[in-house]
Write a protein that binds this DNA or RNA. Structure first.
Lengths: 103, 103
DNA sequence: TCGTTAGTTCACTATAATTGAACTATTGAA
DNA sequence: TTCAATAGTTCAATTATAGTGAACTAACGA
């Protein structure tokens, strides 16, 4: 399975804001932010066990396509990392502020 | 016509981000930001004259319901102001940063 | 009163999100 | 090496939300 990730310069502000405007996705991003450096499986990063896994998969796809996370296969899991450097390079201060305001 | 505006404490981060994630709405907000203190009619604040006015009206409704603007009737026009104080009180720094990053 | 202006509301279409079911790929155990 | 379990994707169907033209409303001016 090969995931498509946009390159750093293809990140759009609208795409990032839209991706982060959903509470589930924001919680995923927060998890990855706080576990920076560590990859996390979908189940690990997702805060809602009762959510349909297809829905969750879709949220991860949206985060990927917005350029917020990078996902690679790792055994039976799909591990995701937050693309902090790319996001910060493109939109300095945005991620940190949103996560702070969402506390 | 009575418009419903959420109170300051009812503004949600998701609602604000979602509202600002649309390019048309972001341009409206930018216009109102730069003409701070002045109300603006929809036609004035809207940057796309070719857009259907029902679409535009819908964008203003979304901005209103997200708590970003305040609209009052003023003669034949509906004048909108950016609720800068409310937004800044609830989410300090967010509006300014997003507008700066969107330049 | 009639036409114009400025915007809303309605009805319809089109696009996006949610979900269960079926599918794929990897691992671990018998 | 086969079989079951795990972790997620993809598909198809439903539901919700955005975009649009047409009809409507309210205020103003001649």
């Amino acid at each position: 399975m090969n995931f498509v990730h946009p390159s750093r310069e293809d990140l759009t502000l609208g795409g990032v804001l839209s991706a982060l405007s959903d509470p589930t996705r924001l919680r995923i991003v927060r998890f990855l932010y706080e576990n920076r450096g560590n990859c996390a499986s979908c189940a690990e990063a997702a805060p809602c066990p009762k959510m349909a896994k297809s829905t969750l998969s879709n949220h991860f796809r949206i985060l990927r396509e917005a350029g917020l996370i990078h996902t690679v296969k790792h055994g039976v899991e799909h591990r995701s990392v937050l693309r902090k450097e790319d996001i910060d390079a493109r939109f300095p201060g945005l991620l940190e502020l949103i996560l702070k305001l969402a506390e």
